[in-house]
């Protein structure tokens, strides 16, 4: 815990990690060439890539390209991929605990507990991929010789603003993926180191390139671009700064985006399935019955 990235006790200079954006399965610097400074473990200053609106554009394009293949995977397969991410986060739990400690300022035990809760939450959502149909699908007893059923399908490209904590990030990203959507996550001033490390866990799990894209940047700069982008179908604003929400919601109206916005969520309790159900479209099929 708490080892400084700059040097260790024996005089050896440690190798610091460059924090990049994660777009289309690759780690890239912002096309703008910018970065901002975050406080990392041990109080050390860390440079984090500062995404521009063009990075948002690239991430949305990548997500949209991946959408057909990702949403066509079987729910079983998607569940295994979410579970695999839980395995990867668990195996990096030391690193995440250090970051949580540095970024969220809680105690060491609380930091470890938050990482464990985040792992368990990915597992919880992994189990939803092939069960959401049990909640959202139905066979409808219409009056007539028709077989009529309704099924949920993924909404499409969903942009999520990352809350400041690892558990918060998990709670907004996992339901979007469990429902079969692809995601562009925008981490803001707080929690960007956690988000950048999550990108590394995602990259080593089985999520295909472009299905999850993670940007770090400044919410006031990017909120407008994201909320008005016509290639985005849904928005989770729970992690967005409160003063930016109204404008983002009105931006969403331009292309009738599905918006999920929650006041000041407490991420420690189980979040329920409302987020999963917010990012599905229900399709009803009529089919005649007869010889």
């Amino acid at each position: 815990m708490g080892s400084k990235p700059t040097s260790s006790g024996n005089g050896r200079l440690s190798v610091a990690k460059t924090r990049k954006l994660y777009i289309d399965g690759a780690f890239v610097r912002s096309e703008s060439g910018r970065s901002f400074v975050e406080t990392g473990p041990g109080g050390v200053a860390v440079n984090v890539a500062w995404a521009s609106r063009k990075d948002v554009r690239d991430a949305v394009s990548a997500a949209r390209r991946r959408l057909p293949a990702w949403s066509a995977l079987t729910a079983y397969n998607r569940g295994q991929i979410l579970y695999r991410l839980a395995e990867m986060i668990e195996s990096r739990s030391g690193e995440f605990a250090e970051l949580v400690l540095a970024q969220e300022g809680c105690g060491e035990a609380a930091a470890r507990a938050e990482v464990e809760a985040a792992v368990d939450r990915w597992v919880w959502y992994a189990g939803w991929t092939d069960k959401i149909g049990h909640l959202a699908a139905s066979v409808n007893p219409v009056a007539g010789p028709y077989f009529n059923f309704s099924l949920p399908e993924p909404t499409g490209v969903v942009a999520v603003f990352a809350p400041a904590s690892l558990l918060g990030i998990t709670s907004v990203l996992a339901p979007v993926m469990a429902a079969g959507n692809v995601a562009v996550m925008v981490a803001g001033e707080r929690g960007s180191l956690v988000a950048a490390s999550l990108a590394e866990a995602v990259a080593t799990s089985d999520f295909p390139a472009g299905s999850v894209n993670i940007l770090t940047g400044r919410q006031p700069e990017l909120a407008g671009t994201v909320s008005t982008h016509r290639g985005i179908d849904g928005l989770d604003l729970s992690g967005l700064l409160p003063e930016l929400r109204a404008e983002a919601e009105s931006g969403a109206a331009g292309s009738v985006k599905r918006v999920f916005s929650e006041g000041a969520p407490d991420w420690t309790g189980l979040p329920g399935v409302s987020r999963v159900l917010s990012f599905v479209e229900v399709k009803t099929v009529w089919h005649p019955i007869g010889i």
């Binding site: 079983y76 569940g79 295994q80 579970y83 919880w124 992994a126 092939d130 049990h134």
Partner: peptide, 16 residues
């Protein structure tokens, strides 16, 4: 394996 995987996911969702 798939049956264990599927029902594992129910163990913490019995309220649903």
């Amino acid at each position: 394996a798939a049956y264990f995987f599927y029902y594992a996911g129910w163990a913490d969702k019995l309220e649903y």
